[in-house]
Design a protein around this nucleic acid. Sequence first.
DNA 1: TATTTTCCGTACCGTACGTTACGGTTCTCC
DNA 2: GGAGAACCGTAACGTACGGTACGGAAAATA
Lengths: 216, 216
Amino acid sequence: MATAPDETGDAFTERQQAVLDAVLALMVEEGGDVTMTMVARRASCSKESLYKWFGDRDGLLTATVRWQASKVRAGNYDRQRLDVLALRDSLTRFAANWLGVISSPTSIALNRFAIAQAGARGSNLGAIMLANGRFAIGERIKPVLEAGRDAGLIGFDDSETAFRSFLGLVGRDVQIRLLLGDRLTLSPAEIERDAARATDQFLALYGTGTAGPVSH
Amino acid sequence: MATAPDETGDAFTERQQAVLDAVLALMVEEGGDVTMTMVARRASCSKESLYKWFGDRDGLLTATVRWQASKVRAGNYDRQRLDVLALRDSLTRFAANWLGVISSPTSIALNRFAIAQAGARGSNLGAIMLANGRFAIGERIKPVLEAGRDAGLIGFDDSETAFRSFLGLVGRDVQIRLLLGDRLTLSPAEIERDAARATDQFLALYGTGTAGPVSH
DNA sequence: TATTTTCCGTACCGTACGTTACGGTTCTCC
DNA sequence: GGAGAACCGTAACGTACGGTACGGAAAATA
């Protein structure tokens, strides 16, 4: 994954950010079929300005993806007091936040677009999405897992592998179903319940406490 | 989900099936940007015939998705002798098969196309993919799970919920990463190992045997 | 107020592609 | 073998859209 999550090209004018927000809104509403004329009309700017600011259509859409990615920097899951309750709390909060993100209309629209682009050669939008979504999240959660291991609360060989299992328990088939257009509404209550269930299952699999550890 | 997995519109001439296979090959190679001219050239047929057989571009692509879906009918996981070994074997074989499907170039290309289409209004390709993939698989695995429950090997309230957890443990983040263009090669050995690990974890979570059952 | 820069709105151009039309060829059926 | 249908290859048409050009307004600078 080349694109680091840090190099967010968010050096944009307010005017330009408004344009990018217009693109995001159009993507959610129109579903990928976003023309330059539509963007210009929606953002009340001229096409000439669009090309001046973003180069070409691909530049505009890439900037939109980066812009949205720079806005998603979600909460940090501190690993201070490290009893099993704190660990469970951090993981549950992460899981709920993650479920909220992947089920949001903006995330769905943007992932749809990045996936459609990923087929064509010479596209890096998918890499940007992965770097700022899946992998950035992993780099923030893995320290929590490792701290839990250092405290003897959970056990695993590879934090990446453990994190991937956790991701699977949290996300299950939610994202692919939403991307394929399945009507699947996740209420905040359901998100909280699913996050707690996934965390319980993860701790049951990897915990060293009451429930015995399981080979992995 | 409207489209039942049975109503496969596979009433196609061999010539037409060859055309659809050409579309599939083009989708894998070119990544979604499949023009009618390319299909006609690749399939050595005239564009006039394409329009005569499939109506329009959307009809051709819809037929392609249905055609591929009708070919994926994978193995059935018999639930005869129901000791824990047989259950584990059935689940592992399903998991390996599923991982092989979702990591295949054809599946990736087709899901990319269906996801891109799912944004536009009035598209049902996503529903077709879900009906013939995710939900058809579920209808074949849930009886296995329920038989395991009847035999006292595993415990759960809702087979759908248990199946979704299993899906999560098997697929983890594989599908979304592949769809977004991540280089992620799953060798047959890795698939077998991941399938076994996911099955072990699932049985650890839901099993009533040696490992204690876990609330879900 | 005069000048320069930025930018909006719109008209315009070139191309790609979906769709249709047509001449020539092969296959089918009698 | 001959009539008709099906079909291939290609050319042509219309439209949509990415990209550019231009006139005028607004804002900035002096």
